[in-house]
C-alpha cells in the first residue's frame, strides 16, 4: 500500500450499466409475476443470471486491482467509509421495521381495543380485545385483499429461537477469532475460524427454515394471519435474507483466504464482510428480544 501522493481512478467499467439492466429485468419480472402474467418467471431467471454474472465480474475486477496493489491508503479509506455508511443505511432500513412494529403493537392495537386517547376506534369492532401476540383479529373476514386466517398459537422464545441466538452469537465470536488469526498471520486459525462461522451461519438458516415450516403447518402462523404473522415474517424474513447474503459473502471470503488472499495489514474485504456479519448479529439480538421474547 502506498500513500496518496498519486491519485487512483479506475478505468471505465461495463458493470454498472449491466447492473442497471439486471435490476430492471429482475424487478419488472417480479412485478409481472406477482400479477400472474405468463412468461414473467423467465424474466426473473434472466434477471438473476445477469445479476450473478455481474457480481462475479465486478468483484473479480476489484479483487484483481486490489491484488495488483493499485489501491493506496486513500482508496482504502474510501472503501471503509463507504461500507460504514452503507451499513448505516441498513440500520435505518431495519429501524423502519422495528419502528413500525412498535407503533402497531403499542399504539394501533390498544386504540383498536378501545384503550387510550383514540380508543373511539373501538366502535368499529366492539368485541375486539387487544393482546400481544395477536391471535384474535378485529375482523378476519373483512381484509382489503381477502380474508385473514388466525394463528392457533404464538412463537415460543425458548426453543429453537434461543438456540439460534446462541448459534449466531458464537458465529460472531468465531469470526473475530478468525480475524485475530489473520492479524497474527496465523492462516490456520483464520481458515478454521471462517469455516466455523460459515457452518454456524448455515445451521442458523436451516433451523430458521424448519421453524418457518413448523409455523406454517402446525401453528397456522402465516403471512395471512393478521398483524402478528405480518410482523413476525417481515422482521425475521428480512433478517433471514441478510443472513443468506452474509453467508454467501463469508463463503466468498473463505474461498479467497484458501487461495492465500489478504495479508495482516491489508484485508479490507474481510473486514467489510465481518462488519456486515456483526450487524446481522445485532439485528437478530433485537429480534430475539422484541419479537420472540417480550
Amino acid at each position: 500500500m502506498t500513500t496518496h501522493d498519486q491519485y487512483f481512478v479506475p478505468e471505465g467499467s461495463k458493470w454498472p450499466i449491466i447492473a442497471s439492466l439486471g435490476v430492471l429485468t429482475l424487478l419488472a419480472g417480479v412485478a409481472l409475476a406477482i400479477n400472474h402474467i405468463q412468461g414473467a418467471t423467465l424474466m426473473i431467471i434472466l434477471g438473476f443470471i445477469i445479476m450473478g454474472t455481474l457480481f462475479f465480474g465486478w468483484f473479480g475486477e476489484v479483487i484483481g486491482e486490489s491484488k495488483a496493489g493499485d489501491y493506496n491508503s486513500q482508496v482504502d479509506a474510501s472503501f471503509r467509509q463507504g461500507m460504514m455508511w452503507f451499513i448505516g443505511s441498513e440500520v435505518f432500513f431495519f429501524a423502519c421495521f422495528f419502528g413500525s412494529y412498535y407503533y402497531l403493537r403499542e399504539l394501533t392495537l390498544p386504540y383498536l381495543g378501545g384503550e387510550g386517547h383514540l380508543g373511539k376506534t373501538h366502535m368499529l369492532w366492539e368485541n375486539f380485545k387487544s393482546t400481544w401476540p395477536l391471535l384474535n383479529l378485529p375482523d378476519p373476514a373483512a381484509g382489503i385483499k381477502g380474508q385473514y386466517s388466525e394463528a392457533r398459537e404464538a412463537m415460543a422464545a425458548w426453543g429453537i429461537p434461543a438456540l439460534n441466538t446462541a448459534i449466531l452469537l458464537s458465529s460472531g465470536g468465531t469470526l473475530t477469532w478468525a480475524h485475530w488469526g489473520l492479524k497474527k498471520n496465523n492462516r490456520r486459525q483464520l481458515n478454521i475460524g471462517l469455516v466455523l462461522t460459515v457452518l454456524l451461519g448455515v445451521t442458523f438458516f436451516l433451523l430458521q427454515v424448519k421453524e418457518y415450516g413448523h409455523a406454517y403447518h402446525e401453528m397456522n402462523l402465516t403471512l395471512h394471519s393478521g398483524l402478528y404473522g405480518s410482523v413476525f415474517y417481515l422482521l425475521t424474513g428480512f433478517h433471514g435474507f441478510h443472513v443468506v447474503v452474509g453467508a454467501i459473502m463469508l463463503m466468498a471470503i473463505l474461498g479467497r483466504t484458501l487461495k492465500g488472499h489478504f495479508s495482516e495489514h491489508d484485508h479490507f474485504g474481510f473486514e467489510a464482510v465481518a462488519w456486515y456479519w456483526h450487524f446481522v448479529d445485532v439485528v437478530w439480538l433485537g429480534l430475539f428480544i422484541f419479537v420472540y421474547w417480550l
Binding site: 383479529l137 378485529p138 378476519p140 381484509g143 382489503i144 385483499k145 402465516t222 403471512l223
Partner: peptide, 8 residues
C-alpha cells in the same frame, strides 16, 4: 396477505 395497513 399481510395486514400492516389494514385495520381488519
Amino acid at each position: 396477505g399481510t395486514s400492516f395497513f389494514d385495520a381488519a
